[in-house]
Design a protein around this nucleic acid. Structure first.
Length: 441
RNA sequence: UGGGGCGUGGUCCAAUCGGUAGGACACCUCACUGUUAAUGAGGAUGGUGUUGGUUCGAGUCCAACCGCCCCAGCCA
């Protein structure tokens, strides 16, 4: 190996290393692990796109051997070597290291805290900024990114325009108990948004078919594996469209996200040990049942749910177990839904609403429906719910000036990604989870 | 917020009936040319969440508090 070869070797991403078998290339990344076996070293490098085993021979490359021997985990390195197919290496190929530059050596006195062994949840969450380096966490984040890209592409292709909703809002969308209050300028109070929905109703009246995608905040005292206080939501809204149109859009959106991940994140799903066969058949149409039918299904299964009860996690799981796709439950009792829901003209006790429940215990990933378009009814509902009418004047304007039937929904990104990844807890699918009693790091 | 569970070296765990707090990993040294969370031998460091109580004696029993986990409610 000449000096010239080492300095001119092309930098390649580890995920593409298999395309460079027989070539001398450069890898820039970190030392993930190091196994020693006498005069051979077996480092494992990671570069953010994957991990690759290296092999360094004392006899052939004494300088590289000396530089690597004893190098602490997570030291940053630039590696030059020849990619070779190797059945004994994890992943099928490895790099025969000829030169290595240590960019930063981790201090021996202060080793990298995350081992390849098991750790507890609390410890890992405290080290979340480092935990995301592990192959499992990095794979989840890459899947999240792909799901977002697929969702945005799908919405754009369907003719929906992205219209961002504000994060600071003057009042609640759904109730006042779950709001984060912030001090705005000059002693004004503002709140972090719980949902972009009210705003996307306004932009729908301006642009027709729109959606918003961004973070939302709920100060719910919920400590479950499905809750974050800060989570991302994609909320479409369309003028002149109805409940069935939104169910169809939701089916298409979820399918597009799943199929994109299945197609372009095979490697990451394999790292997670995800059973891909359960994702491959996620294509429209999804099973649809009414709330009435869902209650019957539950009662037949021995569940004590009565008509008028909302469904909890147990009930959702029980219903979704009957299907291998997400199931849509529609036309809930109006009394249990938000003030802005439109009533079913065939039965005013029912709201034109729907939820989508992910299979495999994934829980509710979509909630939505048709919005109340009557000015008078909306005012009445605001009063019934004790909401501050003054703060909603702008929203009532949407019913004063050219009110039309319209519908939309909210898709919870993290719940959807958690289901796609097959992770037990939602906290793993966002880079820095914000939960009840955790805002660090 | 309610119910249940758990707090032991940096990390993950063990400690019988209340009786000398220990192991593995991590770290250091040595051996090993195909390791797969490498292995083998040796070494140093370091701990019972807090406060009180019962007892000859408390990691272990009791009380309160703190923290975490799981479930429920609410929701995406």
């Amino acid at each position: 190996m000449t000096q010239e070869n080492q300095t001119t070797a092309a930098v390649v991403a580890i995920e593409r290393a298999g395309d460079h078998v027989g070539q001398t290339v450069a890898i820039r990344g970190w030392l993930y692990n190091l196994r020693e076996s006498g005069k051979l070293l077996f480092p494992i490098f990671r570069d953010g796109t994957g991990v690759l085993q290296g092999v360094v021979s004392l006899k052939e490359h004494p300088d590289a051997f000396a530089a690597l021997k004893g190098l602490p985990q997570e030291s940053s390195v630039a590696v030059t070597g020849k990619i070779q197919a190797e059945l004994r290496a994890p992943g099928g190929c490895e790099i025969h290291v000829s030169a290595i530059e240590v960019v930063q050596r981790v201090a021996d006195s202060d080793p990298y805290p995350i081992q390849l062994k098991e750790h507890g949840v609390d410890f890992l969450l405290d080290k979340r900024h480092l935990w995301i380096r592990t192959p499992r966490q990095a794979s989840i984040l890459r899947i999240r990114a792909d799901a977002i890209r697929a969702a945005r592409n799908f919405m754009d292709d369907q003719g929906y325009t992205l219209t961002d909703a504000p994060i600071f809002t003057p009042a609640a969308c759904e109730g006042t108990t779950t709001l984060f209050e912030v001090n705005y300028i000059d002693d004004q109070k503002a709140y972090l948004t719980q949902s972009g929905q009210l705003y996307v109703e306004a932009t729908a009246a301006a642009l027709g078919k729109v959606y918003t995608f961004g973070p939302t905040f709920r100060a719910e005292k919920s400590k479950t594996r499905r809750h974050l206080t800060e989570f991302w939501m994609l909320e479409p809204e369309a003028a002149y469209l109805h409940l069935e149109d939104m169910i169809e859009l939701g089916e298409g959106l979820v399918s597009a996200m799943v199929q994109s991940v299945v197609k372009s994140r095979k490697r990451e799903l394999a790292t997670l040990g995800r059973d891909v066969s359960k994702l491959e058949n996620i294509k429209p149409p999804f099973p649809r049942i009414t709330y009435d039918e869902a209650v019957q299904v539950l009662q037949k299964a021995g569940n004590p749910t009565k008509w008028g009860d909302d469904f909890g996690g147990d009930e959702e799981t029980l219903i979704s177990k009957n299907f291998d796709k997400p199931v849509v439950i529609h036309r809930y009792p109006a009394a249990m839904k938000a003030f802005y829901m439109e009533a079913d003209p065939k039965n005013p006790n029912l709201a034109l609403s729907f939820d989508m429940i992910a299979p495999e215990g994934g829980g509710e990933i979509i909630g939505g429906g048709e919005r109340q378009s009557s000015y008078e009814t909306l005012v009445k509902r605001l009063r019934e719910h004790n909401l501050p009418e003054q703060a909603f004047q702008w929203y009532l304007d949407l019913r004063r000036y050219g009110s039309v039937p319209h519908a939309g929904f909210g898709l919870g990104l993290e719940r959807t990604v958690a289901w796609i990844c097959g992770t037990e807890h939602i906290r793993e699918v966002i880079p820095f989870p914000r939960m009840l009693y955790r805002v660090y790091p």
